[in-house]
Design a protein around this nucleic acid. Structure first.
Length: 463
RNA sequence: CGCGGGGUAGAGCAGUGGUAGCUCGUCAGGCUCAUAAUCUGAAGGUCGUUGGUUCGAAUCCAACCCCCGCAACCA
């Protein structure tokens, strides 16, 4: 029980990383680091999702093979996470050999257990390629897909179906009893409501698409990309004795796949469903939906350039309650960065370091840790912004105490050093709370406050 | 009548029956160790609207208005 296995979604390589991917990944990393700090064997899995018609098409447009194209974009994600100090245990790709093998084993089990219909069904209809799904006539506007403004193609193909409807009762029970914890609660209710409206069997294969994993029981079909993608968690988890996953962190758009379809797939092969699925909110950008068409997509580099790696990690999680939508604006993020990091933590460290340096203080003892249930409860329920409010209160208290005690007026060296040591003790304890959020900064501060203390350049220059 | 969430100070939020709170911003004052920082204090809200229950409602009930999610390039 002493493990914590968390996942981010694996990101689809039709798009380079943006603030949304970054948000999910940082949250997952913070939580994993927190559990690690608590002494658990905590592991974070992330990666990229690379199959499907959309990728095949995008590659073609660039005059590349799908794999070459996927390699390139996948690399972008990996580079971004490395830059952001994401401590993943593995960067999994759906084109990895072990994944392909596990997908095939998984599907074969499903098939043998009768969870997949023996024969494919013929499906005729209008197919929207960018959507990768069939569309009904009344979804179309003037014969075009309302989202993509393209005409769907007449299409008939045979698909294998997963008997999802068989799991309706079981899923309803597991979710309502929190055996599969779906969070936040509003999402749980939403999912339950939708389940009660009835589950339909779903297609899990494509007949005319080469860029995918062949079905083990009918190699003329490839695995539908979503099915392939979900299994990634199990590819790593099962091979490393980590299953079931403790947490799938997802965006609210893909909650259904993770809380319903994926658990049903696992049940169909006799495996345990994930313990928790948490869906966080989305960003709007200055009040508008973030979209490539509007062109208001925020890239992680823009954030890093302005706030630094730790600043970016902090500001994203501190800005809004996790789980709800938040409206991004540079003004808001600037304010938050200046108030909490530059004026708060950064300045406090600077003022105490300077006073300590002047008095020739040297620290050689372990400062211990805060006992703070409040903080723990918040972070363990993924209330990151709430947890940070708690941590910032500690800092505020130290600032107040310094202003009251006026150490700069104290001439008696022993008395002064005793005071300073008490400040440092409080700072160090608090910094440990910040550590999962600000791993590099925390390390810097901890080393600055051990041994003979020196002033240092600002940790967080004002923006 | 598909299901659900929400509307509280300039901003972001907390507050589920008992004199409206937090963080930021604004204004005034103090301090000088510090990143024009920090500390103290103040201003600022008829808690979406209307009606009801109650000794008492942001909090319960009803109706209405407005935003949003499930529901559609995408986290």
């Amino acid at each position: 029980m002493n493990k914590f296995f968390a996942t981010t979604p694996i990101y689809y390589v039709n798009d380079v990383p943006h603030i949304g991917h970054t948000y999910t990944t940082i949250a997952a990393d913070v939580l994993t680091r927190y559990h690690h700090q608590k002494g658990k064997e905590a592991q974070l899995l992330t990666g990229t999702d690379e199959h499907g018609a959309k990728i095949a098409e995008a590659a073609k447009k660039h005059g590349e093979k799908p794999k070459e194209y996927a390699d390139k974009i996948s690399q972008e994600f990996k580079k971004t996470w490395d830059k952001l100090n994401i401590n993943y245990v593995r960067f999994i790709r759906t084109t990895d050999e072990d994944h392909i093998k596990i997908v095939q084993e998984f599907l074969l089990k499903m098939y043998k257990n009768g969870a997949v219909e023996e024969k494919p069904r013929l499906y005729k209809g209008l197919y929207c390629v960018p959507h990768e799904k069939f569309m009904s006539k009344d979804e179309l506007v003037n014969g075009l897909c309302p989202d993509h403004k393209t005409a769907p193609i007449d299409y008939a193909e045979e698909n294998y179906y997963f008997r999802l409807s068989d799991y309706q009762q079981k899923l309803e029970q597991l979710i309502s009893e929190d055996k599969i914890k779906v969070r936040p609660l509003t999402r749980k209710n939403e999912v339950l409501g939708k389940i009660r409206q009835g589950l339909e069997d779903i297609s899990i294969s494509r007949a005319n698409l080469e860029w995918g994993i062949p079905l083990p029981f009918d190699t003329s079909h490839t695995t539908y990309v979503w099915i392939d993608a979900l299994i990634n968690y199990y590819t790593y988890g099962s091979a490393n004795d980590l299953w079931p996953a403790d947490l799938h962190l997802v965006g609210k758009d893909i909650l259904w796949f993770h809380s319903v379809i994926w658990p049903a797939m696992l049940l169909s092969i006799g495996e345990e469903p994930p313990k928790e699925v948490f869906a966080h909110g989305f960003f709007t950008i200055n009040g508008e939906k973030m979209s490539k068409t509007i062109g208001n997509v925020i890239k992680p580099e823009e954030l890093i350039n302005k706030y630094g790696v730790d600043g970016t990690r902090y500001v994203l999680l501190a800005a809004f309650p996790f789980g709800e939508d938040g409206n991004f604006s540079w003004e808001l993020f600037d304010r938050l960065y200046n108030a909490d990091l530059a004026n708060g933590l950064g300045n406090l460290v600077a003022r105490v370091a300077r006073l300590s340096e002047k008095s020739g203080l040297s620290i050689n003892q372990d400062m211990g840790e805060h006992e703070t249930k409040d903080f723990e409860e918040k972070i363990e329920s993924l209330d990151f912004s709430g947890a940070l409010v708690v941590a910032n209160h500690y800092l505020k208290n130290i600032d107040e105490k310094i202003s009251q005690e006026k150490p700069w007026e104290i001439k008696d060296k022993d008395k002064l050093q005793k005071l300073l040591t008490s400040y440092i003790s409080e700072i160090v304890k608090t910094v440990k709370l910040f550590q999962p959020f600000l791993p590099q900064t925390a390390e810097n501060i901890l080393s600055q406050f051990s041994g003979s203390i020196k002033s240092a350049p600002p940790l967080f220059p004002r923006v």
